[in-house]
Structures are given as C-alpha cells and as structure tokens.
Lab assay of single mutants.
Amino acid sequence: MPSETPQAEVGPTGCPHRSGPHSAKGSLEKGSPEDKEAKEPLWIRPDAPSRCTWQLGRPASESPHHHTAPAKSPKILPDILKKIGDTPMVRINKIGKKFGLKCELLAKCEFFNAGGSVKDRISLRMIEDAERDGTLKPGDTIIEPTSGNTGIGLALAAAVRGYRCIIVMPEKMSSEKVDVLRALGAEIVRTPTNARFDSPESHVGVAWRLKNEIPNSHILDQYRNASNPLAHYDTTADEILQQCDGKLDMLVASVGTGGTITGIARKLKEKCPGCRIIGVDPEGSILAEPEELNQTEQTTYEVEGIGYDFIPTVLDRTVVDKWFKSNDEEAFTFARMLIAQEGLLCGGSAGSTVAVAVKAAQELQEGQRCVVILPDSVRNYMTKFLSDRWMLQKGFLKEEDLTEKKPWWWHLRVQELGLSAPLTVLPTITCGHTIEILREKGFDQAPVVDEAGVILGMVTLGNMLSSLLAGKVQPSDQVGKVIYKQFKQIRLTDTLGRLSHILEMDHFALVV
C-alpha cells in the first residue's frame, strides 16, 4: 500500500459497493488471473465517493441489488447463522422517566444476534452475496479491517462455511474481542490505534497488504460494500417497522461504517417519512454534520465500534436529520445504567446512543415513540467499562463513588512517597548505550525526554532486548525507535489509591 493515498477510480455505471474482489474501477472485475494482476490496485480507499443510485421515491424494481426479506425461524435451526436477525424490541421503562421523557422509549437489542452484535447481519450478508456472485469459493481466505464486531461476525460465518479468516484490528480494541476471535479460529493482526486510516500501518493498510500477498484472499470491505446497508434496509428496518406496527417518530443510532443508519433510515424514509433520524458520533470522530460539531482538541476516545477519521463510502449522511456528539463518560455511564436499571447487557456504544436519545427525544410528546439501536453486548468489555477499576483509572468514576473498604494508605498523596527525580535518556542515544546505562543503574525503564525536557515516551529494558533479539533494531539504532509513546501519567497530588489502580493494569506510571 502506498504512503500517498491515490484516488480510487470510478467506473461508468453500476453501484460502487459490489461485493467481491475490487477492480481499479471499484466494481467486480472478471477475466484471467493475468488481467486481474495487471488491473487490481494495491488498495482502494474506504472513503471513495459513493456511486449508489438510491433515491427517495425511486421504484424498488430499479435497484441493481439482490434483495432479501426477513424469514421466520424454524423450530430447529440448521446452523447458528440462522440465529442472525429477528432481534427483540424491548421497552426501556426507567431511564426515559428518569430523564423526563414523555414518549415511549424502545430498544432494538442487536446483541441477541448469534455473534453478539449488529455486525453479524452485514457479515453474513457480505459472505452470502460474495458466494452468490462467485467471488468467494471453498478454501478462500477472508481478510477484514475491523474494530472487532464485524470480525467476530465474519469469523463466526467463516467457521460454519469453512473459510480461512484473518482479522486486522487496532490495538485499542478489547482483549475479549481478541479472545472470541481466536476461539472462532480467526487469525488476528493488531495495528497502532493512532495510525491514520490511509497510513500503511493502519488496520485498513495492513489488511490490503495481506490481501496482495495471500492468494485467493478477499477483503469484503464493510466500508464500501453495498451488502452492509442492504442488510439493514432489507431486514433490520423491516423488523423495526413490523415490531412497531409502522408507528415510530424517531430513530437514534450510533454511527461507525454508517451501514446501520443508512440502511434503516432509507427504508424508514420510504415507509415512515415523518420519522426523524438521529445520528450519534463520538467526540474525536469526524462523521457528524455540520462540520463545526467535529471541532475539538480530542483525537482519541475509548468507546469502541463507532466514529472514524474518514467518511466511509457506505455512509449516506443525507438521510440523517440531526447529529449529536457523545463523550466517553456519558457513554459508559449510560451503558452501566442500562445494565443495572433495565437488565440490558449492552456495550458502550449503546450507552452513547441512549445518552443522546434522552436529549433528542425531549421534543417528542406522549403517545409518540423513539427507537434506539443497541449494537453489541457487554461480553466484549468485561475488563473495560464493566470494571470499576478501569473506570477509575480512566477518570470516568471517582473514588467516592465506590463504597468498598480501602487499605490505610489509600488516600495518601503520591508526594508522600518522597520520590527522587528519575533517570532520563535522550532519544538520540543508541539502544546499546541505553541498555548499558539501565543495567549500570539497576533500572528496568526510563523516560525519554528531548533537550527541552519534554517527555516523549518510555523505554524499557525488556522491550529493547526483545527488539534486538527479533532483529527489529540494532544496538547502533537510536533509542527513539523503541519508545512507548502511550503511558499513564500521575500527579504528586493524586492518591496512592489512584496509582494502585493504574499499576494493576500497566507496568509503570510516570509522575509529573
């Protein structure tokens, strides 16, 4: 994948999101292997301009796509893939009243899908469409860049269908997702969380590099694949309309690839034109409109599966009536509230959605109805927002919020430890010299600072030695090549209790 991002070429006709291997024109390309080798690009942008032909009021008969309808489940399912879809609609009884809503608040519980998330729908649909058009064949390999849930859905379907599955996901995604993927037989590649989507090191860039190296491999490409919004247009939206008897006044959905909100909203605009569509985008993402909503100094966020630093091709923002931004604290607070007060075992993005819903639905009156999409299960986040310690460490809970008995030293300040200034190293000294210094002084790690004293990161003896043994660096290389740029900081005025929580999850903390 090139470091400079080429513009994806656009073909003359058809839909841009065809499933299957992508040609340089962004659509299915038939021909000899030699032709494909000559024409197939190194990668295709996940934010390529959409060429979708959908228009409100256009006859369904003019759609270029294969459409399906929700099917009634048999008493005995032939395999677990038949437990994807037909998820329950559940009334939220307490939270709406707590925040003064007059309307009825309903939750579409997508964590009841077989793999635990709304992404099971698009995973199965992308595979079925690729099999139907002859792209996927027995023994082929599926590769997908994902925040985890699409990966789980694909790995689940691949396990049943017999495909090899490789999932490329950023490091910030939970260990629970990784464990589930491994249990399903998927191979996992992790990428830096802070890598831009168009960087060769991003999950998108690495996935395309693997595709170019592995024979008979395919990126189904949830960011561009029409099967993504079509899955929701054909099934999720129809289920909502049936469950609500066609009567709903507002739908609120958090947005990642945009397939969920695009597919549902398009069908609702056709069948229930008075329904307002509300999009939820986390602070630090750029999906919301108008652009002024996205202006923030924050560039990272903890909530998973929603928000991006690019506009995915499948996201149709014209069908969203209003956007709201959400933050991590309210997302996790509301997710825990949904679990504790409503018994809905949902993930953090569901918290984002409901946090926005109780604001947006203030305009609705008694007798009206708001539906929220709860995308995934708490299963993926047992060591994250479900953990009091994690919430404390991230600053989303305060010590006084917890009532468990603490040891005698818990409320003492870090400054009472009488710490001395640490050994520091410059980023320009060599790895070999740094190892000598650390061994001589008896230290395992040291902060790396520039000549102005600005902290650049941390270097550890173990990481340097393993990097040297693996051949990633040489003793003569500058130590700046092996620094940890993500590390926890703590102030002298913070409590030892807070430091204790940090050290339970990290090997060190830097006192500043």
Rank of each mutant, 00 (worst) to 15 (best):
S3F: 14
P6W: 04
A8Q: 10
V10M: 14
S19T: 03
A24D: 14
K25H: 10
L28W: 11
K30A: 09
S32W: 14
P33N: 10
E34Y: 13
D35I: 11
K36H: 12
E37Q: 13
A38S: 13
A38V: 14
I44A: 11
D47Y: 06
P49H: 08
C52L: 03
G57P: 08
A60R: 11
A60W: 11
H65D: 04
T68D: 11
T68P: 14
T68G: 13
A69Y: 12
A69T: 12
P74I: 03
L77Y: 05
I80F: 09
K82E: 12
I84C: 08
I84R: 07
I84S: 08
G85L: 03
R91L: 04
A107T: 11
C109K: 01
G116N: 07
R125A: 10
I127H: 01
E128K: 08
D129G: 05
D133P: 10
D133V: 11
G134D: 07
T135K: 10
T135C: 05
L136P: 03
D140A: 09
D140T: 07
D140K: 07
D140C: 02
T141I: 10
E144R: 04
G153A: 01
A155W: 02
R161G: 14
I166R: 08
V168W: 00
M169S: 01
P170G: 01
E171N: 07
S174T: 04
V178N: 02
R190M: 04
T191N: 04
F197R: 08
D198K: 06
S199G: 04
S199D: 15
V204Q: 08
V204D: 07
G205D: 10
G205N: 08
P215Y: 08
P215L: 04
S217H: 00
L220S: 03
D221H: 06
Y223A: 00
S227N: 14
P229K: 05
P229W: 05
P229E: 06
A231V: 13
H232F: 04
Y233M: 00
T236F: 13
T236Q: 01
Q242I: 12
D245S: 09
L251V: 11
L251T: 04
S254L: 06
S254H: 07
G259E: 03
I264N: 14
A265K: 08
K267R: 08
E270Q: 13
E270K: 13
C272Q: 09
C275D: 00
